[in-house]
Computed example of a mutant assay.
Amino acid sequence: MLDHIFLTVSNMTRSIAFYEAVLPSLHITVRHDYDGKDGPAGHPDLKGFGANGRIFFWLRQGEPSMNAVHIGFVANSEAEVKAAHSAALEAGATEIHAPGAQLHYDPHYYAAQVRDPDGYSLEFVYKSWQHAS
């Protein structure tokens, strides 16, 4: 299981605005700024996002490498997939694929995929078998 991820972005202000618009659709609502000067030598300033007492998605300023990362965010329903997809498009993302069943992966895999302003591939994923009682 992953604890956190750093995503290098070209324009911190634009990226914060984008993720502040998109992540609440997935219940990721906490924002935290980390001043790198207080950490280990050479540690960058970070802008973090999280939920449930954890900050796990961090942005740092730099030169993006859009083909280096694909991020799949958990959604708790098809409605959350649609909401995140819509929020992302409204915030400036470009669509890779609209919300829908991804039968080539699994019959219970419902997702949408976009590119953020730096070109990173983001997927909003609902796997109904994980939520079955």
Rank of each mutant, 00 (worst) to 15 (best):
I5K: 04
I5H: 06
I5M: 09
F6G: 14
F6S: 11
L7F: 03
T8R: 04
V9K: 03
S10W: 03
M12K: 03
M12Y: 00
T13R: 13
R14F: 03
A17D: 15
F18T: 03
F18Q: 04
Y19S: 06
A21M: 01
A21I: 01
A21H: 04
L23T: 05
L23K: 01
P24S: 09
P24T: 03
P24E: 10
S25D: 07
S25Q: 09
L26C: 06
H27Q: 15
I28E: 05
T29Y: 06
T29H: 09
V30Q: 15
V30S: 14
V30I: 13
D33M: 11
D33L: 13
D33A: 15
D33F: 14
D35W: 05
D35Q: 12
K37S: 15
D38A: 10
A41R: 01
G42P: 10
G42S: 14
G42Q: 04
P44G: 06
D45K: 02
D45G: 03
L46Y: 11
K47L: 10
G48R: 07
G50W: 04
G50I: 05
G50M: 05
A51F: 05
N52H: 13
R54L: 13
I55N: 09
I55D: 07
W58L: 14
L59G: 06
R60V: 08
Q61P: 02
E63K: 14
S65A: 14
M66R: 15
A68R: 12
V69M: 12
V69A: 14
H70L: 06
H70I: 06
G72A: 15
G72V: 07
G72W: 04
F73E: 02
A75I: 04
N76L: 12
E78K: 10
E78V: 08
A79I: 10
A79R: 10
E80A: 14
E80W: 00
K82W: 00
K82R: 11
A83Q: 07
S86T: 08
A87S: 12
A87W: 03
A88L: 06
A88D: 01
L89W: 02
L89P: 08
L89I: 09
E90T: 00
E90F: 08
A91L: 09
G92Q: 05
G92T: 09
A93S: 12
A93V: 00
T94K: 04
T94R: 05
T94V: 13
T94A: 11
E95R: 01
E95Y: 02
H97G: 10
H97L: 06
A98F: 04
A98T: 08
P99F: 08
G100Y: 07
A101F: 09
A101T: 11
Q102C: 11
L103D: 15
L103G: 14
H104S: 12
H104T: 13
Y105L: 08
D106Y: 04
P107I: 03
Y109L: 07
Y110R: 01
A112W: 02
Q113P: 01
D116W: 03
G119A: 02
G119Y: 02
Y120W: 00
S121H: 14
L122M: 09
E123R: 00
F124Q: 00
V125H: 01
V125W: 08
V125M: 03
Y126F: 11
Y126V: 09
W129N: 15
Q130P: 01
S133H: 12
S133K: 06
